[in-house]
């Protein structure tokens, strides 16, 4: 019987937890942090996936964390998030040759091969006006639920671009837009475009030229962002790339962690049996 592994991805916006039996995915949870303690939410997610899979803690062979999960006490091991997103990305979509992960603070573009090997990657640095956190703040300000952002953005006719690089000043830009009666969809689309443009830049820097790009992370299901990304790829004449999402994209990091956890577990078991022999 295959081993049970749990992957926990602690992002700055949400905590994602999955449970696997070998390559078989049995349970998942996602909990937005919204001013709560991520470590408690990690424990909560852990308990809940076990409950869903009707398993006990002692059945778990390996609990792997990723993201900001280095301090989870009950974890067996930790993997770096680009390693896990790459693996999780290929699991979700075997065609994927790049994974773009838009977290609350940082965006990452990871160029991978068909086995999920990371070929190169690029992460955003400093100044986060193009981040998920920023989009979420603005959406809250505009009274738009996170799930609606995409739908609204896609109706935009005249997107209004955000010029400031500093997120705080960009907030003011947006407030100014509202006072100038710019429509909500145009504001959201404007933010989507500036995010997409950053992501395309990251992708280009990784050196990928063709193949499927899978969006992962919290914003992967934002249809507006996906649309903006596709448009940017066309604008930038990088026609060899196709951006797609997956209903479970948000879990990519956690999935990768669980799968790598299984890999390490087998390795450790092997070492142990060798030591015993």
């Amino acid at each position: 019987m295959s081993e049970i592994t749990i992957g926990i991805d602690i992002g700055s916006g949400a905590v994602k937890t999955v449970l696997f039996r070998g390559e078989q995915w049995l349970a998942k949870r996602v909990e937005r942090i919204r001013r709560r303690d991520p470590l408690e939410l990690a424990r909560q997610g852990f308990d809940e996936v076990l409950e869903e899979a009707k398993l006990k803690e002692k059945d778990v062979s390996y609990t792997a964390t990723t993201g900001e999960g280095e301090n989870v006490k009950f974890a067996t091991g930790h993997f770096y998030s680009m390693t896990t997103h790459a693996r999780g990305g290929v699991y979700l979509n075997p065609e994927a040759r790049a994974v773009v992960d838009i977290g609350a603070l940082n965006g990452r573009a990871i160029y991978i091969d068909e086995r999920g090997k990371v070929l190169s990657y690029k992460m955003t640095s400093q100044c986060a006006s193009g981040s998920g956190q920023f989009l979420e703040n603005i959406a809250r300000y505009l009274g738009v639920a996170v799930e609606e952002i995409g739908t609204l953005s896609k109706t935009s006719k005249n997107p209004e671009k955000v010029s400031s690089i500093c997120a705080v000043l960009a907030e003011t830009d947006v407030i100014n837009m509202v006072s100038r009666a710019i429509a909500t969809p145009d504001i959201l689309k404007g933010i989507h475009i500036s995010m997409a443009s950053r992501l395309v830049k990251l992708l280009k820097v990784t050196g990928i030229t063709k193949g499927t790009v899978l969006l992962t992370g919290g914003l992967a299901l934002d249809a507006g962002l996906l649309a903006a990304l596709q448009e940017e790829l066309v604008n930038e004449k990088i026609s060899g790339l196709t951006a797609v999402s997956h209903p479970d994209s948000i879990h990519a990091g956690a999935i990768g962690a669980a799968l790598w956890g299984a890999f390490r577990h087998r390795k450790l078991a092997e070492l142990q049996s060798r030591a015993a022999a």
Partner: peptide, 15 residues
Amino acid sequence: TCTVFAGAELRDRLS
């Protein structure tokens, strides 16, 4: 003192 990264720094220190 970057506002947006303040949260990350805070978590770093707490951890």
